[in-house]
Amino acid sequence: MNTPAANGRFEVTDLDAWFSKKQVLKHVELALPARRITAIIGPSGCGKSTFIRCLNRMHELVPEARLAGRVLLDGADIYAPGVDPVLLRRRVGMVFQKPNPFPTMSIRDNVLAGLRLTGAYDRGRADSVVETALRGAALWDEVKDRLDEPGVGLSGGQQQRLCIARTLAVEPEVVLMDEPCSALDPIATARIEDLMSELKARYTLVIVTHNMQQAARVSDRTAFFLDGELIEVAETNSLFTSPQDRRTEDYITGKFG
């Protein structure tokens, strides 16, 4: 068994994924170290979103979607028979491209939604869970006086941090973020990026982004995908300064994409 500090490490081997007949991931081999930020970059349609949706078994929820290969979380295959995808998703949280707070719930109830959905809600702990999660998402000071107002009344950036708080409240080991800033303005984006750097002390972060500057700013490692293939993965600095593959170089220098 791993020590707690090493929890949340992914190893992906020979991963293929399809939407009906179209293959969107081809033989992907990638390790995601625990408590670090890995950025997934690449042009639209390269399979980067599909890749992270394979990590919490969301890919299979799309009708006619299939996959093959091995995905190990802390050494255990998450696609092994007997693994409950619902339980897995409590360990591997996800933040989506567009902020999607639950429209019928207050700020407070949005944070508690995960606990209620998983049956782990405990009234006595609720207040402290709400405060911890909102502090963790750097939102507490802005909303502490209006926790009972609707979550959708917040600004876009605040809504996205509320969605992060909602994810943290379930106490996952890994947080997947699918272009979490693409719908936000630069100031809101900067706040989320700061938040990512804080979060990596306790969570493994995987961030899909089409914004190379963002990948360079926040991530420790960067993986470049193209047409469903992993082209190159390296420490972020070295990938951006001395890419090994010609296609990576073309992409990061803006020759295509």
């Binding site: 619902v86 639950f102 998983t118």
Partner: peptide
């Protein structure tokens, strides 16, 4: 996106329906 949010938090299909989609 709301269904996916519910599933992403570790909610089962039924929990998502009754706590998120129906409301």
């Amino acid at each position: 996106s709301l269904r996916e949010a519910a599933w992403g938090l570790g909610g089962s299909r039924l929990a998502g329906i009754f706590q998120v989609v129906l409301p």
